[in-house]
Design a protein around this nucleic acid. Structure first.
Lengths: 345, 345
DNA sequence: CTGAAAGCGCTTACAG
DNA sequence: CTGAAAGCGCTTACAG
């Protein structure tokens, strides 16, 4: 229709007031008489005025945008339901206020850091989400150096100086170990994530602690990059050992599903001969046969709260949004009593 | 460090030139003597100057940002590898030039439309990706009304007036039917996506055409929303019919995996008693047992080209980036000869 | 309650 | 090759 976008100057002229007053009226600021406000609003509406995010961003020094940079490898990323779910939670929090998520996917840690830097320095985003925090993570230093806003997803052990939101899973993991012990298992295998990721390390520690506390031997541990491919290799490695575990716990569901596939292929019956446990409670755990015992984490809620916290940070608030609900054990079909077999010493 | 961000005015002052000249030097425009340019650049670097995306966006009327709005339901979204993969391709194309992706996830079609509108009208993005195009899709009209830039992912049948990028899969689907025919199947079941989505409709039509051409009866068809849950229900429905299909083809891999789970649970051996075929070639198809025969689509490349095309559109170019590579049939373990059995009339 | 002006940090004609 | 100025579309003190 209009050749040119309508601006507040156009609205001001038509309404016979100044630009400043239009801005006040549009933003619901006090100091505009009800009739004038009414008139301005209706003119703006009639002219189809829409705020220009760029101009607003420049004059307020705020983009109303938040950044998330993912550096996992493509294959892991594509099968991991974490991010889509997390993002849907984030969106639920930010879209109401008209804020926006800037998402970036990168292929290396250097690029990840550069991307966070440029997003923040250029003012494209007002704050960032930091996931998959690593030991001595350079992103923490970067965000501090830029005195930018950030929310860390992970565990408070990260003395980041940033607000941290984490799903507490110690109780669920302990319940899992208790469940396996009750079924008679005492040789556990653990397929863990990369040890340089703090949450992977913590997950492993929680399980080892639970196992030890409950009188099990230290579990056998194989480290992976979270990919199904390495999950499969880890399964093979564990099962080919001298005293193979009778139950394997995986750090995510798709590694567990790959393990399940391998077991079937090797003629090992799950759960009669081997119990398998995932982590995350992704959709597919319900539709596999046997369905997977797993640990359920409310990732969408996590994302929702993280976004609320970040918005509140940026606005200088000190809102305590509270931690997301703790993880829960979901017992399904892939765990059962340990098989009777001649036992060694 | 610096209390205030350094701007080109600071650089200009320190270098003893005008702001305009700094801008020219920084943007590599002609009309600046080599020595001056050199000096300006080094001053800018020393002062740690970084461009302000907001200011640049306002004065150039360009955000260097592109929008993608997803409206699939959370459960489908979380298990569908399409979007993470697509996005990684998009990023590969745009991140080099310093452009950015604005991602939105919404819960209804109304919100989807509103979001596209506000992204475009506010100038937050310079163009958008349109996926999952539906019959009489209101987004097409919207984008046209706003005379905005867009790239459509789907099939040219959509006479959108926008450049369209699609993965041609007719040949692969025909090869799939040929493969099944060669194995002796003549009762096919199809688990399709929502018929109001043009690509779902087209997928179904391609398979029906291939089946008819190759002398099969019209396949039995069950429509779903692409979720594993409905994939499972569809499988049950097909298998409980009077003459159950001997092979079922699913519109995506996770429905196929849910179908596989159901078959196992019902005591039906795959592929001896039932052949199962997925679509998409997601990671998990390799790790299932039996591994899934599927159709491989290079989604990352699709995203890469779509982004290139969109950038070129916005810049007024007419680059022909070419269509992404066609889909390919991947024969794995889940398809085999039709079982011998007493056949009806 | 209202207006006129300056400013956010860039880019871009227009003069010289 | 370089400078001074206007402008992008808003917001926000500051006066009246």
């Amino acid at each position: 229709m209009a050749g040119r976008k309508t601006t507040i100057a156009d609205v001001a002229q038509r309404a016979g007031v100044s630009k400043g007053l239009v801005s006040f009226a549009l933003n619901g600021r006090p100091g505009v008489s009800p009739e004038t406000r009414e008139r301005i609003l209706s003119v703006a509406h009639d002219m189809g005025w829409q705020p220009d995010a760029r101009a607003r961003a420049l004059s307020t020094n705020r983009s109303l945008a938040y950044g998330l940079v993912l550096s996992r490898n493509p294959s892991v990323l594509s099968s991991d339901p974490f991010f889509p779910t997390f993002i849907s939670g984030v969106e639920r929090a930010i879209s109401g206020p008209g804020h926006v998520l800037v998402l970036s996917v990168v292929e290396s840690l250097e690029r990840e850091l550069e991307t966070y830097r440029s997003l923040l320095e250029s003012g494209r985003v007002d704050g960032v989400f930091l996931t998959d925090v690593r030991r001595d993570d350079p992103r923490l230093a970067l965000v501090q150096e830029l005195s930018a806003h950030a929310v860390v997803l992970g565990h408070p052990r990260v003395d980041a100086g940033f607000p941290t939101l984490s799903v507490s899973d110690e109780a669920a993991l302990d319940a899992l170990v208790a469940h396996l012990v009750a079924l008679g298992h005492h040789e556990l295998g653990l397929v863990v994530g990369p040890s340089h990721m703090l949450h992977a390390e913590r997950w492993r520690d929680s399980l080892v602690a639970a196992a030890t506390t409950r009188g099990l031997r230290t579990p056998r541990i194989v480290e992976t990059d979270f990919s199904a491919e390495m999950g499969l290799a880890a399964t093979r490695e564990l099962l080919e050992g001298r005293t193979p575990p009778t139950a394997i716990v995986y750090a995510n569901d798709h590694m567990a599903l790959a393990g399940l596939g391998h077991a079937r292929r090797a003629g090992i019956e799950v759960p009669r001969e081997l119990s398998i446990v995932g982590y995350g409670d992704s959709d597919m755990t319900r539709y596999a046969y046997p369905s997977l015992t797993t640990v359920s984490v409310d990732v969408a809620e996590w994302g929702y709260r993280a976004a609320q916290l970040l918005m509140s940070q940026v606005e200088g608030g000190t809102d305590d949004v509270g931690q997301p609900p703790p993880a829960r054990l979901e017992v399904r079909e892939s765990t059962a009593s340990v098989p009777e077999r001649p036992v060694g010493p």
